[in-house]
Design a protein around this nucleic acid. Structure first.
Lengths: 220, 220
DNA sequence: TGTACATCAGTGAACGCGCGTTCACTGATGTAC
DNA sequence: TGTACATCAGTGAACGCGCGTTCACTGATGTAC
């Protein structure tokens, strides 16, 4: 308690080392993918012996889970920041693209190919809901009431994923559409499926966003 | 040449074993993901010793590359079959979804998180172009001429990826939109991001396809 | 301020594992005369 | 049809590697009196 923010020097040191471990882990993921992440390799890069890391993480799984958590957290923060000046779909879309391009492997850790059998802990799915809530807010904002699509009607009976958000069916549908369309664009772009095709991915993204804004998608 | 189709018994045996290796490989990928694929494990499952597989594949990399090639090939065949009774976007879309659901890990091998640094051999990108060509045919079919979008105009200057296909800009744009939107839906569905949300992914897919057909996307 | 003790970061050795891959070899299958 | 030879599938041992993880230990840092 004699310390600035209630942390002892040792606690601060611990936090610092934990942070560096994660930093190296991200570097490693960027280089060789998430499945190649290795505690021993991280330790070596840090000039430490392998077992030393077990002072900071119970094991490889705990580290990976924390990386996934951080990735979700970072996306949620980005979304919150983007909608700080009022909920807006376009702002959110650009924030999402910026976040994705800043670190493709982080994006893939969230939305990429899942490891069969892995289930994220509850607190992570909670952050995912947070992201969805911001998106729903933005989708609810400009067009106050659009006619419900048939699928929107279906959604009305399955709105559990929207939490306690009072969005009407058309908004639910719009949010899902926003999510799936932009994910389609971003994941293909980040995976490099557009490279060699010549066109500018940013323009395709802009065009798709434009259509998402102007036209129907949940508004007949 | 005394044999039925020009193959000696040994050649047929070889082909058969190669096929079984791939079969086991797919099983393994389905269980633990592509990054966990191991020659030794496959050999053990087949009741053989590890080194035996080197009679059939030069190494792990060659096997993986062939699996990727087969995946692309299978998608191209599916597309060809689907458009046998005339080019049609809706038919293609359903064929794609069926193909994806039939084996999610195969889908991810084609469109999933890439291993940083891996580049597919040329013959595989050729199959990818084949897929794109079928898609372009289907997109060109029903609405003979739609007005070009601004992005469509951009595409006109970057149509190299369309091969020698004479599609107008609006069709190019439409094909890209088809691709990115359906990929967004399918990859999220296959990755399990919809599970627990309650709604029926098939209905969302249908709704999205419906909009892809009725409305603009390349037609202002 | 100084001493005694507890905490805890990091080390090095070790265990067991599975991996990809090579090599020399055995034994069965096919081919040539 | 039978013999001599070549081909080739599969084995088992071995190499070197890096992995995750445990354990007993050293030495530095912080705490209590």
């Amino acid at each position: 308690m004699t310390d600035t923010d209630g942390k002892s020097p040792r606690e601060r040191y611990r936090a610092q080392v934990r942070a560096e471990i994660k930093e190296r882990a991200w570097e490693q993921i960027a280089t060789a993918g998430a499945s190649a992440l290795s505690l021993n390799a991280i330790a070596k890069k840090m000039g430490m012996s392998g077992p030393a890391l077990y002072r900071y993480y119970a094991g490889r799984d705990e580290l990976i889970t924390e990386l996934v958590r951080d990735a979700y957290r970072s996306l949620a923060d980005t979304f919150h920041a983007a909608s700080a000046s009022g909920p807006d779909v376009a702002t959110l879309a650009h924030a999402l693209r910026g976040w994705a391009l800043a670190d493709p492997q982080r994006y893939f850790l969230v939305y990429g190919t899942p490891v069969p059998g892995y289930h994220a802990p509850e607190d992570i799915t909670a952050i995912a809901s947070e992201v969805m809530a911001v998106l729903l807010d933005a989708c609810a904002a400009p067009p106050p009431d659009a006619p419900a699509t048939p699928f929107g009607t279906h959604l009305e009976g399955h709105r559990h994923w929207a939490g306690d958000h009072p969005a009407p069916p058309a908004v639910l549908h719009r949010a899902l559409t926003f999510w799936t369309r932009l994910h389609g664009l971003l994941s293909l772009e980040l995976a490099g499926h557009f490279t060699g095709m010549g066109f500018d991915p940013a323009l395709l993204f802009a065009a798709e966003l434009d259509e998402l804004l102007t036209d129907s998608s949940g508004a007949g």
